[in-house]
Nucleic acid binder design. Structure first.
Lengths: 206, 206
DNA sequence: GTCTATATTGCGATAGAC
DNA sequence: GTCTATCGCAATATAGAC
């Protein structure tokens, strides 16, 4: 499902293609805003279209329906996130440091944090169009972080009594939960600091 | 706003009052289901009314509008949750054990977990009718758990280098984040076990 | 206390002109 | 590629009969 690549034209044969791609990009930015603020179900194509400055029909020329627009937004944001977190199974520390970098970066893009917090809760329902996307995403992320902790365990740098899988589950849960508290009151905590404090209890680094 | 008590009649002077209260209770149960599955914004009064087996107008006779219905649902659930977590500032351990009991209880009422996960993310938006409710709720909960960890610190039972406030923030974040993962895949983890493992790293008990 | 009927608004999506 | 016009549906809420 989301294994499919973003449906952008691979080659540009005409000059007009560049303009189309720009339009599509502006649509995605607007859609990110709307889905962040209102969630997918309550966010409207009407609102997205208005922010782009075009009609709903014009918008639907680029994305056939609401669900495929959401998919495109998620695909785009995933590319960015994976840039920050290296996934070398031989270098668990790099992955863990990547999570810290991600937490720090997230604090600069509250809209994106809001998007994922809202959607991951919403997509809990099996009939949600992003349900499979999130199920798969969490499975993969858990495995990735588990592998990182396993690498650190091999090096004797995991706190005794801590299991790699348990640490992975807790790390993801902590990151998600911190986001909700932070969105509700940004002065109440620093996401990266809180994550770092936790990680220092679990793994020996720095 | 939510400082107001649930708007139930205090005294019953007529036999018919009992039937009314039963109806109101059935409405709240149905509303819990609907708001859990679809969130507040996308959950409809139509759906709630259908589950109760009455018309929308009939429903609105008991709760003047959608927002006050949500408030009533939240008030009802809060009563139950506070029963499980004792808040004696002289007995921090009891509070922490209460959180564990709450996590265990939550696993038996997925609908309630879904309600709070969905709503707390949704209510991140300042214009959401439950925004103030959740902001206040998180502030209070953070302070309550911080006090519990402070009590344990006084007894020398908090892991060195851990701050009561940081532990409180992390504990809440962990509980919230575990819920999302659990809702997406209930076989992936046990919420209470994960919480317990974390607490054992933070505080000396059992 | 519950109903039918209705007002009003907003939604996603399609048809077809330009 | 973008528009106007429109369809069909569902939403919250109100008015008033019973």
């Amino acid at each position: 499902m989301e294994t499919q690549a973003p449906a952008a034209p691979v080659r540009r044969r005409r000059g007009t293609y560049a303009k189309t791609e720009d339009t599509r990009h502006r649509i995605l930015e607007a859609a990110l805003e709307v889905f962040s603020e209102s969630g997918y179900r309550s966010g409207s194509l009407r609102d997205v279209a208005a922010r782009v400055g075009m009609s709903e029909a014009g918008l639907l020329h680029h994305y056939a329906n609401k669900s495929s627009l959401l998919q495109a937004v998620l695909d785009l944001r995933d590319e960015r996130a994976f840039d920050l977190v290296p996934v070398d199974p031989e270098d668990g520390e790099a992955t863990i440091r990547g999570l810290l970098a991600l937490a720090r970066y997230n604090a600069s893009v509250p809209g994106v944090v809001e998007l994922y917090s809202t959607l991951s809760a919403e997509a809990t329902s099996p009939d949600h169009p992003a349900h499979e996307y999130f199920t798969l995403r969490y499975t993969r992320t858990r495995n990735m972080i588990e592998a990182a902790f396993e690498d650190l365990a091999r090096r004797g740098r995991l706190t005794p009594g801590v299991s790699p899988r348990g640490a992975a589950i807790a790390t993801i849960a902590l990151m998600d939960g911190l986001q909700v508290q932070w969105l509700l009151d940004r002065s109440a905590l620093d996401m990266a600091d809180s994550l770092e404090a936790f990680l220092h209890k679990v793994v020996d680094f720095d």
